[in-house]
């Protein structure tokens, strides 16, 4: 059982590795973006899909990572390596702080608290415009996008960097959900009171989930900024909190490869739709409605239910 799970995930990583050599440039660039965003979605999935905590403000963690990285480069002249570390730390710190406060609430109140904190961060980015360049954002110069001697602006290197992040997060998640701590997170999602009465400190486990989820999201944000060279306030806005929810729901909440499948599908759905119409929001809206109505478990969730019960 363990072997086929490992085979599936290593196979996916291997497939993405091979794709690099065959994809035409347009799709090559798309898949690189999708892999980084899928890492973001996996971070979201840890909280929503595995622990049962619905956040409506995850863009704040993504943006914290992105701005932590970008601002430390822009204003302190940090090199890419140090800036990435700053970005990850920013995601971690914000997630820990938000977790400590927001986890005092549950359910609807939790969603609204996360939404409000995210909104406050977005507004703060606008308010400190002279420092953050507000709405416009800023470009990270090519000369700064060199990581350990590798030019991240080069498509091939960029693709492999995105794949490295994706593989790292995927394998870390695989390890975590099979680890006792991950089992407890799933138990909390299923029945928090029962979990507590089995002697687990559910509050600390939830805090761990929020912090880890925020750190992964922040890392994805920092890497996205580094690879694609742009830092902007739109990444802190509400849509970027909704997207991971959408991707995870589409792919299957509480499944490991679901976030990737969901991101891939949604990306190409919008891509195809935009060939016909520029109404991408309509596509997103209709997709959300159809998902909640007809496939609340998502693609991988449905596969697991029907045919592949062993899917993690």
């Amino acid at each position: 059982m363990t072997q086929r799970i490992l085979a599936l995930h290593l196979g996916l990583i291997g497939l993405l590795f091979v794709l690099q050599f065959v994809l035409p440039p347009y799709h090559h660039d798309n898949i690189a973006r999708i892999m980084v965003m899928a890492a973001y979605a996996m971070g979201y999935n840890l909280m929503f899909g595995y622990t049962g905590l619905l956040s409506l403000g995850h863009a704040m963690f993504f943006a914290a990572g992105m701005y932590g990285m970008g601002l430390s480069m822009q204003h302190a002249g940090f090199a890419a390596e140090a800036a990435l570390a700053v970005g990850i730390t920013a995601g971690f710190g914000l997630a820990l702080g938000v977790g400590l406060l927001a986890l005092r609430t549950t359910g609807v109140a939790f969603m609204i608290v996360t939404l409000m904190f995210a909104q406050a961060l977005f507004l703060a980015i606008l308010y400190f415009g002279p420092f953050t360049r507000g709405d416009e954002g800023f470009v990270i110069p090519l000369s700064a996008r060199i990581f350990a001697g590798l030019r991240l602006s080069d498509p091939t290197i960029r693709y492999f960097a995105a794949l490295a992040l994706f593989a790292l997060v995927l394998l870390a998640m695989l390890w975590l959900i099979r680890h006792p701590v991950g089992r407890v997170l799933i138990a909390i999602r299923e029945n928090e009171e029962r979990t507590r009465m089995l002697g687990y400190d559910t509050w600390r486990h939830k805090l761990f989930a929020v912090t880890a989820s925020g750190t992964i999201s922040g890392t994805a944000g920092a890497v996205y900024g580094l690879l694609f060279g742009y830092v902007g306030a739109s990444f802190a806005e509400v849509p970027y909190s909704i997207f991971p929810l959408l991707w995870v729901l589409l792919g299957g909440a509480g499944t490991l490869v679901g976030p990737f499948i969901g991101t891939l599908f949604m990306f190409y759905l919008i891509d195809l739709a935009s060939g016909v119409t520029d109404a991408y929001m309509l596509v997103v809206g209709v997709a959300l409605l159809l998902l909640t109505l007809f496939a609340p478990r998502g693609i991988m969730g449905m596969l697991r239910e029907r045919w592949l019960p062993w899917l993690p």
């Binding site: 089992r183 407890v184 799933i186 138990a187 299923e190 029945n191």
Partner: peptide
């Protein structure tokens, strides 16, 4: 009990 988990997973928890 944890309805969506298997019997064995319930006890393992």
């Amino acid at each position: 009990v944890f309805g969506n988990l298997t019997v064995q997973e319930n006890i393992a928890l």
